[in-house]
């Protein structure tokens, strides 16, 4: 359906914006390494199911893309364009996010099986993975416009999945409660950012926190 397609496209575009921003400016200023590491974890734990579950060639290619691009971005951030200044303000305690997601995945899953727990873990972790990045924005008080486009596209992906789930619930009778709940949590976390993005960036102002 259209929402899912738009969501996936938005997800893809977000990564391309980020890669393009880093490569062109040859800098990772203002980008949270911790958030990027969390995304590697999210993609690895959710998408390694491609080794034992086949959905479609589209699904497989997208999974491979997200796993490899996220690892590549972390590689660029650590080795190629290391930025100690940015690292110093990247102080969000992600061990709590990882630990919390792990505990929640043990409690909420569809089956108490390794693959299912990993899947649930990735959903919980993804819902909060942007926090170090938003925390960094809050500390610096402003961001490069491209960085805000990246965050917006990344947030739009999960937000667009919400009407997709409603659509699938109506048309297929399928409901994935975990994905829906974590998707809503994620969208709420983004809501503040969306609001500022809409009011400032889209109207041509710089991204500055009020």
């Amino acid at each position: 359906n259209i929402f899912r397609a738009a969501g996936d496209l938005s997800h893809l575009i977000s990564i391309l914006i980020l890669l393009n921003t880093i490569q062109k400016s040859r800098s990772i200023a203002g980008i949270s390494l911790k958030t990027q590491i969390l995304y590697v974890l999210v993609f690895l734990t959710r998408y390694l199911d491609l080794t034992y579950r086949y959905v479609s060639i589209y699904n497989t290619l997208m999974k491979l893309f997200f796993i490899s691009s996220s690892i590549y971005i972390v590689y660029l951030m650590i080795y190629k364009f290391k930025n100690t200044e940015t690292e110093q303000i990247d102080t969000f305690p992600i061990e709590y996010l990882i630990g919390g997601s792990f505990i929640l995945s043990l409690i909420f899953n569809y089956k108490f099986q390794f693959g299912e727990i990993l899947w649930s873990f990735s959903l919980w972790l993804e819902s909060v993975a942007i926090l170090p990045q938003l925390f960094m924005l809050q500390r610096t008080g402003e961001a490069r416009t491209l960085t805000t486009h990246y965050i917006f596209a990344l947030g739009a992906y999960r937000t667009l999945y919400i009407p997709n789930w409603i659509f699938r619930w109506i048309s297929e009778g399928r409901v994935d409660y975990l994905a829906i709940f974590t998707g809503i949590v994620q969208t709420i976390i983004y809501s503040d950012f969306f609001y500022i993005y809409y009011h400032r960036v889209l109207k041509g102002f710089k991204f500055e926190l009020p």
């Binding site: 998408y47 199911d49 579950r53 699904n59 999974k63 997709n164 994905a179």
Partner: peptide, 10 residues
């Protein structure tokens, strides 16, 4: 509502 959740999304 179907019980089986298929992980076919990204």
């Amino acid at each position: 509502i179907k019980n089986e959740v298929v992980h076919d999304e990204l």
